[in-house]
Amino acid sequence: MLFGKTREDENYYLNKAILGERKGFEYLIARYQKLAYTLAVKICKNKEDAEEVVQDAFMKAFRALADFRSAAKFSTWLYKIVYYTALTKKSSRRMDGIELDEDSESEIYLLDEKKEFNGLVQADRKRYINLALNTLGEEERVVITLHYLGEKSTSEIAEILDIGKSAVKMRLVRGRQKLEQSLKGLLGTEINEL
């Protein structure tokens, strides 16, 4: 019921944006920018590049806004643009010879340590979980981000990444297993709930 209401709201504001109304744009940006930004950060591993990617993606998506009649289709299209723009950005950075991976050896070393998580402050907790996520392959990381943070279904993820549903499911299972493994070392007793 609640889900249906959200979809209705999204479609309502999508139509407002098509008519050029500011509140339509405000709603769509507020609703989709977080996941778009997170997705871009997870691929580019650089906040400045991620901001550029998100801005480019939104501008491209809004240029085709009038062709969409459903917000679900629009968001899938938007995340697809974010994904491909981020990949292009990353490969162009690689060609420029700029190292993007923020994981230093010392940070990876921290992953191996069986640190007690309970004593760590929130910022560290966030950093450790991000590190665990960074140990996954890029596609697994993207699938995990879209599924757990964006609450996207397998078919939506398949559409965004242009791969089959079974490939998405496989990456999801594999990514989850790897993540659990990494987090077990990091989070100690807390992860037992998983």
């Binding site: 977080k34 997170t38 995990i144 998983l194």
Partner: peptide
């Protein structure tokens, strides 16, 4: 719990 953990800690906010 994995979903809760990720949603609380992994989402980047511009």
């Amino acid at each position: 719990p994995l979903k809760c953990l990720l949603q609380q800690n992994v989402m980047d906010t511009p």
